[in-house]
């Protein structure tokens, strides 16, 4: 089936089998391997990407369902100037990753929430709910939670300055 995915603002005209999940098409057809498959049944969240700004498990979505829609992956997280996203800096600062396999999923989950919710820093319970959405086997989660809060606080400060 012919579809067009807009991934990180680049159009990808593709011919894909309907059964191919979004994650596989991003990884193999678009060659964006930053999105990882950790369980392929929607539990771990390593494959989380943003579809039209909303965080979704890309193993629980067919690529054909995303025809004409906008997808953002970890490769598209950095700023337009190529500088790191506040989340990327905060994850590093807080040791919120060790092996890094689940990391892109947590980053995109948090990126979607930060975009949708400029006051995230004031709602630690929403951050809890985000961190509670994905699995990580290395960090024990607390560093991830601290990193997301740190990035949210930084974003809030920047918003205030602006």
């Amino acid at each position: 089936m012919k579809i067009t995915l807009t991934v990180n603002a680049t159009d990808y005209p593709l011919d894909v089998e309907p059964r191919r999940i979004l994650a596989d098409v991003l990884r193999e057809d678009c060659r964006l391997t930053g999105t990882h498959l950790g369980c392929e049944h929607g539990v771990c969240g390593a494959c989380t990407v943003l579809v039209d700004g909303e965080a979704v498990r890309s193993c629980l979505m067919l690529a054909v369902q995303c025809d004409g829609r906008s997808v953002r992956t970890v490769e598209g997280l950095a700023g337009a100037d190529g500088g790191p996203h506040p989340l990327q800096r905060a994850f590093s600062a807080e040791h919120a990753l060790q092996c890094g396999f689940c990391t892109p999923g947590f980053l995109m989950l948090a990126a979607g929430a930060l975009d949708a919710d400029p006051d995230l820093a004031e709602h630690p319970e929403r951050v809890d709910s985000l961190v509670g959405s994905n699995l990580c086997r290395c960090t024990g989660y607390a560093p991830i939670r601290r990193a997301i809060l740190r990035a949210a606080e930084e974003q809030q400060r920047l918003d205030l300055q602006a």
């Binding site: 930053g34 970890v74 997280l77 990327q88 800096r89 590093s92 990391t103």
Partner: peptide
């Protein structure tokens, strides 16, 4: 530095390379 660990920049930007990523 922006990055606490040397591994971080690539792992946080989708440029890590795990076996399944090798084409």
């Amino acid at each position: 530095s922006t990055w606490t660990r040397r591994e971080d920049e690539r792992l946080l930007s989708g440029r890590g390379r795990y076996v399944a990523d090798i084409q």
